[in-house]
Simulated scan of single mutants.
Amino acid sequence: MKRIVLFLATNLAVVLVVSLVLNLLGVGRAVTGEGINVGALAVFSLVVGFTGSIISLLMSKPMAKWSTGARVIEQPTNSTERWLVDTVRRLSERAGIGMPEVAVYDGEPNAFATGAFKNSALVAVSTGLLANMNQDEVEAVIGHEVAHIANGDMVTLTLIQGVVNTFVVFLARVVGFFVDKVLFRSEDRGPGIGYMITVFVCEILFGILASIIVAWFSRQREFRADAGSARLLGSSVPMQHALARLGGLVPGALPSSMAASGISGSGGGWGALFSTHPPMEQRIAALQALRQGA
């Protein structure tokens, strides 16, 4: 639950901060006492909506290394590191992507892939994953992360986040204009305190709804990456075993900005709406159905 709250807060903070900065610079004056300049507001909303998402994507690799302490394997120093590099290379060739950087970081069982481009991505696994899973299971997890890269999931989620952020910014200002005009403005002047308060509240409320949409797309990409691992390995059984093993372990926490990047993570109750990953039982069932349909 803590990670879900941090994930929501991070996305909302980006939208609010970028919006505030542009308003202070005078860029966001698309709403006046006379009405709404739809074209100017649309451009403003696009800039605010996509700026944070694109910057996060471009900085994802260095930020992931820094925030997790991941150590990139330049030259394998032992048999485990050699096996990791060879496995990533083999699965990447099957997936038709360039060789990603391979890294290991200290922590409980987890793994992630990140990067703005398919041919220069990063695949990292935790020491806890290596210690608690056998090679077949780790290979399946690596296949899952390679499938994320091959599917372009990092870019797709960035675009989706940018689109929903754009709608959040646009709709919040439209609602703010009408609320301010009806309830607070007695003369034809520029938007006042009612407009600013309404926009702030709407950005939070619409941002929460937007996060539900983004989380749904994130859960769908997890199903696709599981299936992608099964295709790369030629069988869904290793991925099923890996997910079953992960379901019995406490997943390693990743920074809130990387909540969608890990191999596992789900929330119960209302938190499931904001979860970036489906429950393990659903993922295993989807793989079983894939196997039966093959």
Score class of each variant (00 low, 15 high):
residue 191 P to N: 08
residue 87 T to A: 03
residue 176 G to R: 03
residue 106 D to L: 02
residue 41 L to Y: 06
residue 209 L to K: 08
residue 235 S to D: 13
residue 144 H to I: 14
residue 150 A to K: 12
residue 119 N to T: 14
residue 279 P to E: 09
residue 168 V to C: 00
residue 2 K to H: 10
residue 291 R to A: 14
residue 169 V to E: 00
residue 65 K to V: 14
residue 293 G to E: 13
residue 86 D to E: 15
residue 273 L to Q: 03
residue 123 V to Q: 01
residue 165 N to F: 03
residue 222 E to Y: 07
residue 141 V to R: 00
residue 100 P to N: 03
residue 188 D to T: 15
residue 3 R to N: 04
residue 171 L to V: 15
residue 53 S to H: 08
residue 89 R to A: 11
residue 195 Y to S: 04
residue 199 V to F: 08
residue 159 L to M: 10
residue 210 A to Y: 02
residue 220 Q to D: 13
residue 172 A to L: 07
residue 156 T to S: 09
residue 262 G to T: 09
residue 120 S to P: 00
residue 136 D to G: 08
residue 121 A to N: 07
residue 2 K to F: 05
residue 93 E to Q: 14
residue 32 T to R: 03
residue 187 E to Q: 06
residue 19 S to R: 12
residue 95 A to D: 04
residue 33 G to A: 07
residue 4 I to H: 00
residue 246 L to T: 07
residue 2 K to P: 05
residue 159 L to D: 05
residue 136 D to N: 14
residue 230 A to N: 05
residue 132 N to S: 11
residue 247 G to K: 02
residue 267 G to N: 05
residue 7 F to I: 11
residue 147 A to K: 08
residue 275 S to T: 07
residue 82 R to A: 15
residue 190 G to E: 05
residue 88 V to I: 10
residue 200 F to G: 03
residue 187 E to D: 07
residue 96 G to H: 03
residue 244 A to V: 15
residue 36 I to Y: 04
residue 291 R to M: 14
residue 74 E to L: 15
residue 154 M to A: 13
residue 232 L to Y: 01
residue 104 V to M: 03
residue 281 E to H: 02
residue 248 G to K: 12
residue 173 R to D: 05
residue 270 W to T: 15
residue 104 V to R: 02
residue 66 W to F: 11
residue 128 G to D: 00
residue 12 L to T: 11
residue 85 V to E: 07
residue 232 L to C: 06
residue 221 R to G: 02
residue 259 A to F: 09
residue 88 V to T: 12
residue 119 N to H: 12
residue 186 S to Q: 11
residue 98 G to C: 13
residue 156 T to W: 07
residue 219 R to G: 02
residue 52 G to Q: 05
residue 212 I to V: 15
residue 226 D to A: 13
residue 267 G to W: 03
residue 99 M to K: 06
residue 289 A to N: 12
residue 113 A to W: 01
residue 263 I to M: 03
residue 203 E to P: 02
residue 19 S to E: 12
residue 153 D to C: 09
residue 274 F to H: 05
residue 116 A to H: 04
residue 198 T to F: 02
residue 210 A to F: 06
residue 55 I to W: 04
residue 112 F to H: 02
residue 147 A to N: 07
residue 110 N to G: 01
residue 54 I to L: 13
residue 241 H to R: 13
residue 31 V to E: 04
residue 75 Q to Y: 12
residue 159 L to V: 12
residue 132 N to A: 10
residue 201 V to L: 12
residue 85 V to D: 07
residue 192 G to Q: 01
